[in-house]
Each structure stands twice: as structure tokens, then as C-alpha cells.
């Protein structure tokens, strides 16, 4: 991997002692720009602003966010991220590293990731949540822009709660992915696939109930104080509706 852009953005959220959340670290880098926007109540709100479209082949982006004890952080993005083929050879990488301390809360709700034709992107998201931390995390992958074959996309989502891995899942799709990725066991022609992860200390004693939200979406209690909503849909719009409804249903 050479010739691409290396960029790391960092966010640190801290309880400001006055009922709010301060952001002692808020560092964008190159194509990864960060803006603090108006938050609600104790919550600080940050918007990821893609100054360039990205990531292209050969690029390696990293976003790190840490939420300290008692802090509350909401991270969104201004627009969908589009993986495109680049000048540089090889795949692009996008790493997300999130930590939430006990008593902290993170709402990580970026816009979709779109895998454009000819692109090759590896996304990895690692989240470490304290046993008494709270998390809402959404990931949406859209396979191809409108009426376009997707690029090669691999994503891995690892969630640890209180030091235990409660979810580890990879999804590989697009040209060159292992066989059957678009077949009846995996995606069956659906072009949008999403996950919503909810971690709450209360789930330890009272887990979320399994629930079917339609043919393409289910709520599943994980083996730990967390729930996963897994959804597939024909397009990004319908996927978002499924995940929004799922989040509402979790209360």
C-alpha cells in the first residue's frame, strides 16, 4: 500500500464537571475534518465532514474516539462516505477505534458507506465499552451507487463489553468476495445491509427481547449486555427506515 493518503482524526470526550461534555481533543486531519455542532443537554455533538471524497485506493483513514467516564458524545457525518477506485494501487482501509468508559455514552451514527464500482475497501470497527458504558452504533453499507455494480467491500465489526468480545462479524461482498455473497444465504440481491448495536448495562439483568421487525430486520440479544439489529433492504432509504424503527422499538 503506497501513494495513498494517511489520515487520522481523534476525538476525546470528557465530563466537564458542570453537567456537560467537553472535547479536549478534536483533531481532524486532511480529508477527515471534524466540526463541533450544537449538542443537546449533557451531550457533545461532533460532525465528521468529508473535505474530500474518500477513501480512494491506497488511502488509510483512521478515526479514534474515546468517551471518558460520565461524558456523552454523539458523532454523525455530513454525508455518505463513498469508496472509490483510486490512482494508487491496492485497497483502501478505514479503521474506526472507539472506547467508552463506565458511565460514558457514545452515539455513533454516521451516514452510509457506499461501495462504488471498482473500489476496494476494508473497514474495521473496534469498539470497547466498559461494563457500565452505553453505546448506540449504526453501520450501513450500500453496494454500488444507483444502478451500479458494487466494488469489493469487507467490513469487520468487533464489540467488547467489559473486556469480553460479545460480537465479532465480518461481511465480504462485491467482485472477488468469497462465493455466494449475493446468493440466498447471504444478501440475495439486497443492496443495502446494516447493523445497529446497542449496549446498555440494564441488558445484563434484563436482555432485549428477540424480535422480528419484518422479513429483512431482526433484533437479537447478544451473549452479553448488548443487542444487535441486523437488517437488509433493497436500498439505503428503506434500510435507514428499518434501523430507525428498530431503535425506536428498543425504547
Amino acid at each position: 500500500m503506497s501513494g495513498g493518503v494517511q489520515a487520522t482524526a481523534r476525538i476525546l470526550a470528557r465530563d466537564d464537571g458542570r453537567g456537560g461534555t467537553s472535547l479536549p481533543v478534536l483533531e481532524g486531519d486532511g480529508p477527515l475534518a471534524l466540526r463541533r455542532t450544537r449538542g443537546r443537554g449533557a451531550e457533545a455533538r461532533v460532525m465528521l465532514v468529508g473535505a474530500m471524497s474518500g477513501p480512494l485506493g491506497g488511502d488509510h483513514f483512521t478515526v479514534e474516539a474515546a468517551v471518558e467516564e460520565g461524558a456523552r458524545l454523539h458523532v454523525g457525518s455530513a454525508a455518505a462516505t463513498i469508496a472509490l477506485p483510486g490512482q494508487a494501487k491496492g485497497e483502501a482501509r478505514y479503521d474506526v477505534r472507539l472506547t467508552v468508559a463506565d458511565g460514558g455514552e457514545l452515539r455513533w451514527l454516521p451516514e452510509q458507506l457506499i461501495s462504488a464500482n471498482g473500489s476496494e475497501l476494508y473497514v474495521s470497527t473496534h469498539v470497547d465499552v466498559g461494563a457500565y458504558g452505553r453505546l448506540v452504533l449504526r453501520e450501513e453499507q450500500v453496494l454500488g451507487r444507483v444502478a451500479e455494480e458494487p466494488g469489493r467491500l469487507s467490513s469487520r465489526l468487533v464489540l467488547r463489553v467489559g473486556g469480553r468480545t460479545v460480537l465479532d462479524q465480518e461481511l465480504a461482498c462485491g467482485p472477488g468476495a468469497p462465493g455466494g455473497w449475493d446468493g440466498p444465504a447471504v444478501l440475495a440481491g439486497h443492496r443495502a445491509v446494516g447493523q445497529l448495536v446497542v449496549v446498555r448495562p440494564e441488558f445484563a439483568a434484563d436482555p432485549a427481547a428477540s424480535r422480528v421487525l419484518g422479513d429483512g430486520a431482526v433484533v437479537m440479544p447478544l451473549a452479553g449486555p448488548a443487542a444487535l439489529v441486523s437488517a437488509v433492504a433493497p436500498d439505503a432509504l428503506r434500510l435507514r427506515k428499518l434501523l430507525d424503527d428498530a431503535l425506536t422499538s428498543l425504547g
Binding site: 468487533v158 462479524q169 465480518e170 422479513d215 430486520a217
Partner: peptide, 21 residues
């Protein structure tokens, strides 16, 4: 064990939950 593959199939998981109901 983190080195184990974790390849997933969304419709197998979703289908299993539908089936169980």
C-alpha cells in the same frame, strides 16, 4: 481466538430468527 474468522451471512441470521418465530 480473535484470530478466528468471523464471516457472517445476514440472511442466515435474519432467517433463523424468523424461522424460530
Amino acid at each position: 481466538v480473535d484470530a478466528l474468522p468471523s464471516a457472517s451471512a445476514p440472511l442466515l441470521e435474519i432467517g433463523a430468527e424468523l424461522h424460530a418465530a
